[in-house]
Design a binder for these strands. Structure first.
Length: 422
RNA sequence: GGAGAGAUGGCAGAGUGGUAAUGCAGCAGAUUGCUAAUCUGUCGACGGGUAACCGUCGCCAGGGUUCGAGUCCCUGUCUCUCCGCCA
């Protein structure tokens, strides 16, 4: 959520920034500023009236104490008018404040200066590419065929017990999943992240905190009876751990990592590109979350990018990094780098990590602040990134490491998997 | 699921109708000096003001009673204890 004072002072720059994601902010900003104006004027007026009636109440109290009940009672009559006015004003005040809040919820984050304008993923900017794309033998298969051939993943069993998009991993497939999770967590801990295990269901306030609500209501599974949401990413529970906290400067930066399953309804996304592991309702992910001082956040973002690069290098997978254009940028993000692995057998790039800086967009909603040296309270910047999303990493490994005789396991994973090939 | 207790500032913790004690931590200043002590101020949010400052709100949330509510009433949320059920 944008800060109202910033809209007031940077209106033109914000409008220009939001244009990059094809969001026309002009009229909504005008509406917001008008409401803000009304809100402040109402408060000033209301404050005055309350101040007067407080004075009278105090006087009445004193009169009663000194036994002058008659005078006190005549003063009581005077307060009736104040009461009526203040009731009206405070109704206006809360109506206006509520409306203001609702409008602010509908505005996405302002993209960083470096974000290119654009409408879709076509306009994303490739900024880095590394690794060799392997030349596969003539009968190379896509991962869903490999998964079947080597009995690693059973999609039909998942259909039977739950539905499409809920695969069952078995044998070496399941063990490889566990190896990847352990390897990713170890890498993150080595880089200074603290590991967490968090609930997989969260309440409504948490959904609002990180920005999934109200924007992506339909994308989360909702347990109606208990009014809880299945997490679409561990970003939600982890970042919300700090909701409402006032931190000391010396507690920052806070770096967390967690493995969780993630649940996404993916309503409306069907088609050729959702086969196999490409798009699932439940998948595993290891996540990074950072809470940092504002002046450090872009340096932290670069560090996170380098960290993910390091993992992909060790896995020896060909990858590229995209800077997302305005049109493809998530609602809450100011700058996002997507990592994609090249899937040779499908002959296309698969997104496996997304690393973002949210600046104060989430912390403003959650009121995550810290006290700086001069005791001033400031919102922290929040960042997160996947390290990594398992299914597509698995798809990339299966497809790129296949040979005529089976599938090799990347060397770095062998101590974790306990086997060298499939 | 049943019964009871509770929710007060960054933390701890008083306060049963007269307008939020006190302690700790933090910050600023003063002072004495040596791995720190003492004193004073500050120490939640919002609004107004260049500022000193002023005002309002704030005791889980939302309503109500009252001239006046942390305190009384209603509704809801959450936490804890005991019982029941159970991995």
């Amino acid at each position: 959520m944008l800060q109202i004072t910033n809209i007031r002072t940077n209106k033109e720059a914000y409008i220009a920034g939001l244009k990059k994601r094809n969001f026309d902010a002009e009229s909504i900003f005008d509406e917001i500023l008008a409401l803000d104006e009304t809100r402040r004027a109402t408060q000033t007026e209301l404050d005055f009236i309350l101040s007067e009636s407080n004075k009278i109440s105090k006087e009445i109290g004193n009169l009663f104490k000194s036994g002058k009940a008659g005078e006190a009672n005549s003063l009581k009559a005077k307060t009736a008018e104040f009461k009526e006015n203040s009731k009206k004003l405070s109704e206006t005040f809360s109506e206006v404040s509520e409306k203001l809040q609702q409008l602010l919820y509908t505005i996405p984050n302002v993209p960083h200066d470096s974000v290119p304008a654009g409408n879709s993923e076509e306009d994303n900017e490739e900024i880095f590419r590394e690794g060799e794309i392997p030349v596969l033998h003539g009968n190379a298969l896509p991962h869903w065929e490999l998964a079947k051939k080597y009995e690693l993943i059973d999609f039909e069993l998942g259909n039977k017990i739950t539905g499409a998009g809920f695969p069952v991993y078995k044998g070496k497939g399941a063990r490889l999943q566990r190896a990847l999770i352990a390897y990713f967590l170890d890498k993150n801990i080595e880089a200074g992240y603290q590991e967490y295990q968090v609930p997989l269901l969260v309440n409504e306030a948490s959904g609002y905190g990180t920005g999934q609500l109200p924007d992506k209501e339909g994308q989360m599974y909702h347990v109606g009876e208990d009014d809880l949401y299945l997490i679409p990413t561990s970003e939600v529970p982890i970042t919300n751990l700090f909701r409402g906290n006032l931190l000391n400067e010396n507690q920052l930066p806070i770096s967390c990592t967690a493995y969780t399953p993630c649940f996404r309804r993916e309503a409306g996304s069907y088609g050729a590109h959702v086969r196999g592991l490409n798009r699932l309702h439940q998948f595993d992910k290891v996540e990074l979350v950072n809470l940092v001082k504002p002046e450090e956040s872009y340096r932290t973002l670069e560090k996170m990018v380098e960290h993910v690069k390091g993992i992909l290098r060790e896995l020896e997978l060909p990858f590229r990094i995209l800077r997302l254009c305005g049109g493809d940028l998530g609602f809450t993000s100011a700058l996002t780098y997507d990592f994609e692995v090249f899937s040779t057998a499908q002959d296309r790039w698969l997104e496996i990590s997304s690393v973002s800086n949210f600046e104060t967009f989430q912390s403003n909603r959650m009121k995550i602040r810290y006290k700086d040296k001069t005791n001033k309270k400031e919102l922290v910047h929040t960042l997160n990134g996947s390290s990594l999303a398992l299914p597509r990493v698995l798809a990339g490994i299966l497809e790129n490491y296949q040979t005529k005789n089976g599938i090799e396991i990347p060397k770095i994973l062998r101590p974790y998997s306990g086997f060298d090939s499939i």
